[in-house]
Design a protein around this nucleic acid. Structure first.
Length: 275
DNA sequence: AATCGTAGCAACCGCCGTACA
DNA sequence: TTGTACGGCGGTTGCTACGAT
């Protein structure tokens, strides 16, 4: 459903960088982007590149904050953005990746060319989590829902209020992918780290944890994942991730016992490496 | 036809990690 | 070593379209 938003939501951005700018600058425009603004931004980025987002709007003559410009570019204006609906294959991949990575939307998006983290996040919250719930699967953990949990059909299936702690809080046992108690591989029925270590050994791959840290800017995840040595290249990581995604045996041990019930229902790719 | 509730999603918010002076 | 600027991320908000009643 495409729509434009009206000028929105009061309040001022509290980011320090924006706050300082707001103090001395004309009021920044908020809300939906107009086609004219899109054009200005796209043209400017094409000409000057997308560096220095903070000063970009001023240089481009836009009354937007740098963050807003960056977001608009990343989520909408980039030339490689796919505008087509998410396909079944992509959906399947999202499910697999989410099971592996938790709510690491940027990481997941990185494996889906042309898709943005925001798009995937929205798709997850509006489609996939609902689907999983309908099938009795907890979308956060990919475990079967317990009876009480199954009765929670929130508008967004994502937990309402995250605990305050952010990545700085050490990850719990396992990898602690999520930064706030949301879905994380460690939640997925056990010792993901050990599993990955096993996978490491099997694949001869080292540095999965570091790679994730690198890719993910150390967002508090995978810290306990193992003390891998060298940073692996993206290709290596990609192929490793693919191997995890596709490895039937891996998923067999990864898929939580009791999830077999949904096998063959043809809806959700839970454990679908075996499909 | 009017009203209401829900779904969908663009955009904002707040925080974090990194880079650099 | 410390402070600041910046980019980036995940979570949340709130408006509109649309289906149900």
């Amino acid at each position: 459903m495409k729509r434009k938003r009206p000028a929105r939501r009061g309040g001022t951005g509290t980011d320090h960088e924006e706050a300082a700018a707001a103090a001395a600058a004309p009021p920044l425009k908020r809300g939906p982007w107009t086609p004219e603004e899109d054009e200005v931004l796209a043209r400017f980025v094409a000409r000057e590149g997308c560096e220095r987002w903070r000063t970009l709007p001023r240089r481009a003559g836009l009354l937007r904050c740098g963050k807003s410009c960056r977001l608009r570019w990343m989520n909408y204006l980039r030339p490689d953005i796919k505008r087509s609906p998410i396909t079944g294959d992509e959906e399947d991949l999202i499910l697999r990746l989410h099971r592996l990575l938790g709510n690491r939307w940027s990481l997941i998006a990185g494996r889906l060319p042309g898709r943005t983290d925001n798009e995937i996040k929205n798709y997850w919250n509006t489609h996939l989590s609902r689907k999983l719930i309908a099938q009795g699967i907890d979308p956060r953990t990919h475990k079967p829902l317990t009876a009480p949990a199954a009765v929670t059909p929130p508008k967004t299936a994502v937990p309402a209020k995250p605990p305050p702690a952010r990545p700085s809080s050490p990850a719990p046992a396992g990898i602690g992918c999520g930064d706030d108690g949301r879905a994380r591989p460690a939640d997925v029925g056990g010792d993901f780290a050990a599993m990955v270590s096993a996978a490491d050994a099997a694949e001869g791959f080292r540095g999965f944890g570091d790679q994730l840290r690198g890719e993910d800017a150390a967002r508090g995840g995978f810290d306990d994942m193992g003390s891998a040595s060298a940073m692996a290249g993206d290709d290596e990581f990609t192929s490793f991730l693919n191997s995890l995604i596709n490895d039937e045996q891996f998923l067999d041990c990864f898929v939580i016992e009791g999830n077999d019930h949904e096998h063959g229902n043809g809806e959700i790719g839970q454990g679908n490496a075996a499909e």
